[in-house]
Design a protein around this nucleic acid. Sequence first.
DNA 1: ACCAATTTCAAACGTCCATTTGAAATAATT
DNA 2: AATTATTTCAAATGGACGTTTGAAATTGGT
Lengths: 217, 217
Amino acid sequence: MKNKPTTKERLIQAAVVIFAEKGYHNATVAEICEAAEANIAAVNYHFGDKENLYRQVWAFLFEKSALEHPLPTALPETEPERWLRDFIRSRIEEIFDTGICHRLPQLLHRIKCEHTELHDFVFETYLRPGHERVTRAIKALLGPHATDNQRKLAHINFMGLHIFLNVGHQKDKEKKNKRQHLPAIDDPSELARQVEEFALGGLLATRNLIQHTGTIS
Amino acid sequence: MKNKPTTKERLIQAAVVIFAEKGYHNATVAEICEAAEANIAAVNYHFGDKENLYRQVWAFLFEKSALEHPLPTALPETEPERWLRDFIRSRIEEIFDTGICHRLPQLLHRIKCEHTELHDFVFETYLRPGHERVTRAIKALLGPHATDNQRKLAHINFMGLHIFLNVGHQKDKEKKNKRQHLPAIDDPSELARQVEEFALGGLLATRNLIQHTGTIS
DNA sequence: ACCAATTTCAAACGTCCATTTGAAATAATT
DNA sequence: AATTATTTCAAATGGACGTTTGAAATTGGT
């Protein structure tokens, strides 16, 4: 009852881990094949080239994580504050997922660092829907007086929180021995709570700023 | 009255730009030498190797930017809110500096992406003092009830704002044609104002959360 | 058992890039 | 002017890595 996975499957599995830990450029085809117990030529045979393997890894991982850590179901416009809180929580649970799903934000962290068209491909293919729903929630929360520029900046500030948290977490994973940036995460839920609070506090303060200063036009 | 800079100086100048735009690994010695109008062997002759050139670039840039965009002078403990606001403003002015100084956050953005001991070197050599003063300001602002973990997380959230803003700004610079993440920055000061407001709003909300839920201990 | 298609394999190829080398050119010293 | 030290230069070296190749091994169908 071994049912050893096919070479192709083993390559994907190995590539998920190695791409996530080292990024696209620093990962070598040789080490992926070695980890998958496959020949050096296996990647090119089964996937054509390294880049296509990378795309398959994304497809595999994203599909998996979208099931376990989906976007909040409610409409972002109706209860924007609630929606944004749930969104953050989902992202943080994904970061600290103990299964395979934490490889997705890890991979995301990596790809943001390499300038390649792969980044655009990933954003357009996988990230845009979530991005647009955040946009709508923030628009609803800030109210009709906010300018597009103010919304964009608030969006950046909002997203920066969990994304940067992810960066810190990835760094901590890399160097287990050294001093850690993050608190020990005995309880991701409590951590998520604090990030939620910071994010909403920031957004509401932004709303106040906008309403009090008013805008020309 | 030409007074053409020495080869060594030209190499540094060229390397600042190229390292900042492409990062350490993607920048080649050949292109740096070409931009500096120097021979391919010039880097090794004047600096020993590529890595050492990189360190010299940091020393040069950091010194320059520390003069133009210094940390706030006040003690972080006395008026933490004021100090943190000034800190953010200084960082944002640096990001949008129109001279050479914007290369520093750009370089910082790059180095965070490459896993190399250079990152640790840079942090320990240049960034630690600023880091510690932020720590103290946040500690003062959150009050004595906050746990170390809560402070660490608040610190991450706070720093994430301008760091992630920098990331977005760098991305926008890379692909001028494509859709931009950030608002057009006609006025960095107004942008800084909104980030300040978000940051302090977030921190104060965090303080409220801590005081209301209370901590065991 | 035989043939054809698929998959695996070790070796080789080609490219990119940091670094070295040793000679040539230039500057500094006497 | 002659000698020495410094700097520049083109070419070569060597290593890393993605990809190709063609033969060998395995699998599937009849």
